[in-house]
């Protein structure tokens, strides 16, 4: 027996099992998503680099405490993860990166209710020979479609999902669409399936258009975020995020942060001028 370097694919599977065991110890509900947790029929295996779990929001503090006690370190803030402030990155020197989700981008409903809906009738999937909770098929397809919808248009996994969707049983597609309706996720689902034009007038259209097109223009992204935030009544919080520099460490970073802040302020003024 030797302690040696574990290949990434094996390490990710073991890390899923480690996080699941910590959650079990802490009586925390979670779902394993993507990567080895996903049904390969919908999400073919490819070179992922981290572990994705969705935690019942009310259980998040308990899991965070358990992770800290087990040597994990939080490396990112929820507010920095995306327009949805959905996840935080954690790191362990032995197990690598964990993407800890308190919500899933694109679900426009109370996060606790969204968790209940995704976890309803959940399955158990063996990961590293440990049974881990994973969503039932229609919830998994919705989760994967929302993920692809904000991941740019040219990924092999996006093409695979759309092809699988087209060939899927109509009753399954109807179940996914019904769940998307229940969770206010119709626009994100459409983005993942390549039919975002069906929602051209929706206030979230521009946001999903930015992410699903792979357009890295931060200016366009923030304009879309503000339009969406105004429609959802969270404009104030989004403006505060726009004004907050993200990398104020060294002198060069402080310069970048100053530029970011100036740009954000222009966005704020523009938004206020356009406010109905």
């Amino acid at each position: 027996m030797i302690e040696a370097e574990v290949p990434l694919a094996a390490r990710i599977r073991l890390a899923h099992a480690v996080v699941d065991a910590l959650a079990t110890e802490a009586a925390v509900d979670l779902l394993h998503l993507k990567g080895p947790a996903a049904d390969p029929a919908w999400y073919p295996p490819h070179g992922g680099s981290d572990v994705d779990v969705l935690v019942r929001p009310s259980h998040l503090p308990a899991l965070e405490r358990r992770l800290l006690a087990a040597g994990w370190e939080q490396r990112g803030d929820y507010d920095d993860s995306s327009a949805w402030a959905h996840s935080a990155a954690w790191w362990h020197d032995r197990w690598g990166c964990l993407d800890l989700h308190r919500s899933w981008p694109g679900l426009d409903t109370d996060p606790e209710a969204a968790y209940d809906a995704l976890a309803r009738d959940h399955r158990s999937t063996l990961i590293a020979h440990r049974p881990c909770p994973t969503p039932r098929v229609e919830a998994e397809v919705l989760v994967l479609a929302l993920h692809e919808g904000r991941s740019g248009p040219h990924r092999a996994s996006t093409r695979h999902l759309r092809e699988t969707w087209t060939a899927a049983d109509p009753s399954l597609r109807a179940a996914v669409e019904a769940l998307a309706h229940e969770l206010g996720a119709e626009v994100g689902l459409a983005a993942g399936l390549g039919r975002l034009d069906d929602f051209r007038d929706h206030p979230d259209h521009d946001l999903w258009a930015v992410y699903s097109s792979g357009d890295a223009n931060r200016w366009r992204e923030w304009r879309a975020r503000l339009r969406s935030a105004r429609a959802h009544g969270v404009l104030g919080a989004t403006l505060r995020r726009a004004l907050r520099p993200t990398t104020p460490d060294g002198p060069a970073d402080r310069g970048i942060a100053a530029v970011q802040t100036a740009r954000a302020w222009h966005l704020v003024r523009d938004s206020l001028r356009r406010r109905p």
């Binding site: 027996m1 030797i2 302690e3 040696a4 370097e5 574990v6 390490r11 073991l14 099992a17 480690v18 996080v19 699941d20 065991a21 910590l22 110890e25 087990a70 032995r94 440990r130």
Partner: peptide, 10 residues
């Protein structure tokens, strides 16, 4: 590995 606290063995 024994989870959640064991080291991985090869």
């Amino acid at each position: 590995a024994k989870v959640p606290y064991g080291d991985p063995l090869v």
